[in-house]
Design a protein around this nucleic acid. Structure first.
Lengths: 341, 341
DNA sequence: GAGAAATGTTTACGCGAGTAAAAATAATAT
DNA sequence: ATATTATTTTTACTCGCGTAAACATTTCTC
């Protein structure tokens, strides 16, 4: 390609010998122009390296090709993995994903939504902070922008996609009860609806199986779950106040902290003989296979959640609605048996 | 505020009784208008909730307020943490950070740079993939956009900010040699310049101390360092081919994998009596304090790297250059002693 | 090969703001 | 109060592209 930089579409139109409106159509949807034009345009693109100005494009299009993705905490591997998948799908569909992280803070979430809104996105995929969201702001946003809510089922938006907490918790509670002492439940701080849903699911599952539910609340705030788990673990082990030698944590990050506490206290974790504790998690975080011992957990179906979210959003964008009123899609978890329980 | 949505600045100008050019100035820099105007505008903003259209703004401004951030792998906690800090600083300075992740793939990196360039950013902060980058593309990008390179010192851009690998590796090698058997070095796949720099630093440090350097190459490709570390560890332990009972890993994620391998093989890791291995890492990843045992490592100064990068970029944007020709700022690491070595 | 259907070109206007220049007004100094 | 300076208002043009309408050309169908 030549060094020559092309300023705008008019210039490129002259050089490629194609009219500007046709070029405009091409860039909007390459299939919408005749094949002979397409090859001409693509040949010219090879030669001149022009790309349309994003801002000018989006200023005029009634529907932008921008898709906003807002997550509460991008440093959480759960979200970085799910975002990765979502981004991929958006790009493949010719959209332009823009990612925002609230970094666990209400103010930043509101800010992200405001910036996002000024981008006039075609739609948005958001996992709200939950309890710490500025509900008004989120609701206002979803009124203006077609939105699919995922992971954290706050009652806004046009659809929800997430995990079937009651199924997945039921699954692991059942497993733990079959193979040893019924578990107590180490609950994360209730940052979002999942926290309560999982606890309730635990209680129900235990009662269904005729056991006494034992919920321990790990105190602490924010999203540093490993630290919270570690501190709770140290405290519980030191004061010998664990109601069961089997502990189900409401997420893997908490479990990772708990495993660290057990290790530091010299307690062997696992399901074999000679083990003092069994620890299980929930989510199957990318790191859970590398813990010591590897963590038994319930896998959330990242891929399914990501794909269904994107698919649903595309449908909403296309038809300007879903067939049902705010459908909720939840995916079952799968038991992942490793050494920890 | 009233429900009424304001379409554009003209409309807002009428409602707030301030001329449009003055409003334009205000949104560009609130301090640039007279105080009396400012309070009037801000009162109107309270009342009407208007925000300028991002696309229209950026179309004409010679310098956008957009800052591009490109990292090789956002799911790596090192990058998510550093990005978090960079974003914060940009927002505080009135810029709009846009984050892209290459997800470890050359094609996606090139794509991200292309999209970013079409955003006409005021500047960019990029951590190139390194060996897997399309060097041509990256170089071309940095010619058009004022760029600070961080973490991975690929020879492009107007400045580099990163860690002083030779100091930090020297530090930990020294510590390990003082306190036990001199370490061998478990090297990560050479995805970027840091890989080789750290290995060379290790060799130098060992030679300086009069020991025989022993480098083990963990094979594997991509960014799944934990898995690579785990597999290398299993192999090395099973075949008893570890040249030293002390192992320095070229990063923490590799070390996390190695710790998992040691655990699974029943080898006790730590610096106390009764331990079969000592393991140390490099970076002080957010997870390193929760490993079993907690990981001894060298902390990279995330905050300093993030701040210096941003600061340098702002200087470049402002003066259109730095005082020196492509300065390189490197920060010393700090020894973090935990239980693993 | 004629007529219909599909696609392309020409022309012209709009989007929402940045920005420059001249005129008008306000704030400050003398 | 007058002169001086700092802002603001008015007016008008620009940016790069979407898009609509009228017309011209190509491609397809029988």
């Amino acid at each position: 390609m030549t060094g020559r930089r092309i300023k705008n579409m008019d210039e490129f139109a002259k050089l490629s010998d194609i009219s500007r409106p046709t070029l405009s159509k091409y860039f909007n949807d390459a299939e919408s122009v005749r094949k002979s034009s397409r090859v001409k345009i693509e040949a010219a693109l090879e030669k001149f390296d022009y790309r349309p100005n994003m801002f000018a494009i989006n200023q005029n299009r009634k529907l932008t090709k921008t898709i906003g993705i807002v997550v509460p905490y991008l440093a959480d591997p759960f979200f970085s993995e799910i975002v990765r998948r979502i981004e991929r799908r958006c790009i493949d569909a010719g959209f332009w994903p823009v990612v925002f992280s609230a970094h666990g803070q209400k103010g930043l979430e509101s800010n992200a939504l405001a910036i996002l809104q000024s981008l006039r996105p075609a739609g948005a995929l958001i996992a709200p902070l939950g309890r710490h969201s500025d509900f008004e702001v989120v609701q206002q946003f979803t009124k203006e922008v077609p939105t699919v809510v995922f992971d954290s089922n706050v009652d806004v938006g046009k659809a929800f996609v997430g995990s079937n907490n009651s199924q997945s918790i039921g699954l692991i509670v059942d497993y733990l009860c079959r193979t040893g002492e019924p578990p107590c439940f180490l609950e994360m701080p209730p940052v979002n609806p999942n926290a309560n849903k999982r606890r309730d699911a635990y209680v129900q599952a235990m009662e269904r199986l005729g056991h006494d539910p034992q919920v321990i609340r790990a105190d602490g705030t924010g999203w540093e779950f490993e630290r919270i788990g570690l501190e709770a673990g140290m405290r519980l082990i030191t004061t010998r106040s664990l109601p069961s030698e089997t502990i189900l944590c409401s997420n893997d990050r908490l479990a990772i902290g708990l495993l660290a506490a057990a290790y530091q206290k010299g307690l062997r974790v696992g399901h074999g003989p000679g083990c003092a504790l069994r620890v299980a998690g929930h989510d199957d975080h990318p790191w859970s296979q590398f813990t010591c011992p590897p963590l038994t957990t319930v896998a959330q179906d990242f891929t399914a959640i990501a794909e269904k979210s994107v698919e649903t959003l595309f449908e909403i964008i296309k038809n300007n609605s879903t067939t049902v009123d705010r459908p909720e899609f939840v995916f079952d978890g799968k038991l992942v048996l490793r050494a920890s329980a």
